[in-house]
Design a protein around this nucleic acid. Structure first.
Lengths: 189, 189
DNA sequence: GTAAAGTTCCTAGAGGTATTAGGCAAATAA
DNA sequence: TTATTTGCCTAATACCTCTAGGAACTTTAC
């Protein structure tokens, strides 16, 4: 009886690939077992259950996303940083739709997710440094930026922009221009 | 053998309530049958299958969302309209989280979804009339608005803003201020 | 008013997914 | 080499989806 060499990490990696291929909602214990040529029950030595598996994929995606964003941000400031960060974010979502969907999962162990989530916030805060925003405006601006990025990418990949002929990449650029403008002149009510 | 009085509409309505109570992903044919005190198989005379059921809930949500948005928009213009529309959107998502999740479903029969989707675009376009935007800027702005609204609501309900003490309602208001500002002064590159 | 037709719901059953319990064999440690 | 741990298996339960075919109820048509 030859062993398949399963590992939690290997499973999560394969689950992430599966998610990108067939969609995150179709990442199932059975499908994953099939991919490794083992029985379903065998996976339960490595992951707690299906939910645990999905959460690990989510964590992987969050970390990867933070990595590419950090790379994009390195050595840039101001609008340059904003655009690079945003583009890295959008590119990752396009390249890894399943992982991106996973990253949107509501994680139960808040503590575990916090590390990746904090990295994202830190980076966004770094971008804002170039715009001279102070708290609490900074938090408001971070929330707006995250919302716009996530909303745009999410609607775009769901086909929400397909009805209109206008190229989605151009609207994205214009949206970034608009965000830059609003940050440079943040409304002080 | 007393009849339960099932109807496609009644099923969809109950499924929507179920979605708000336990989450859209837990809306299942079995659970719905249980709620009506009938056998699973009985539902298949009224809906094609589970996917069909979910899509009908999505359509219901899209229509309801368009209705409340239209009400909010009536008789308003400019920033007033923008804020009313956005608040109606956010309020609906908070009141009906399951339905809101359903509305995000990628609908297969594009034609069917188009009617509701068009209403949303029409309304957003109406808001922009107060800002004097022309095509193609209008399309870009619509996409930005939708993205920000959806992204914010989506992140908020997923608990993404819970780490920071800042009240999510205030950040929302400031985001709307920012959107108003950027629309009044749309960057012409 | 009754017979035909259509509709609603049921029973039965097949197939997929999630998960636990318990066992044997392979890898590792003593 | 023996002892222990680990990896994967079989078996079994439970839930969800969906199809086929049948019985009871409702509506239609004469």
């Amino acid at each position: 009886m030859a062993r398949a060499g399963l590992t939690a990490n290997r499973l999560v990696q394969a689950a992430a690939e599966l998610a990108d291929e067939v969609g995150f909602d179709k990442v199932t214990v059975s499908a994953l077992a099939r991919r490794f040529g083992v029985k379903d029950a065998s996976l339960y030595s490595h992951v707690k259950n299906a939910q645990d598996l999905r959460e690990r994929v989510a964590m992987l995606a969050l970390e990867e996303l933070a990595d590419v964003a950090a790379d994009a941000l390195a050595g840039r400031a101001g609008k340059d940083a904003l655009v690079a960060f945003a583009n890295a974010y959008r590119a990752y979502a396009k390249l890894h739709p399943g992982r991106y969907a996973a990253a949107q999962l509501r994680l139960s162990p808040e503590a575990a997710a916090a590390s990746a989530a904090r990295r994202h916030s830190e980076m966004t805060r770094a971008i804002l440094r170039g715009y001279g925003l102070r708290e609490p405006d900074q938090t408001d601006a971070i929330r707006m930026l995250h919302s716009t990025f996530h909303g745009y990418v999410s609607l775009e990949t769901a086909g929400g922009f397909a009805h209109t002929p206008r190229d989605a990449g151009i609207s994205w650029q214009r949206t970034l221009d608009a965000l830059d403008a609003v940050l440079r002149n943040w409304p002080v009510e």
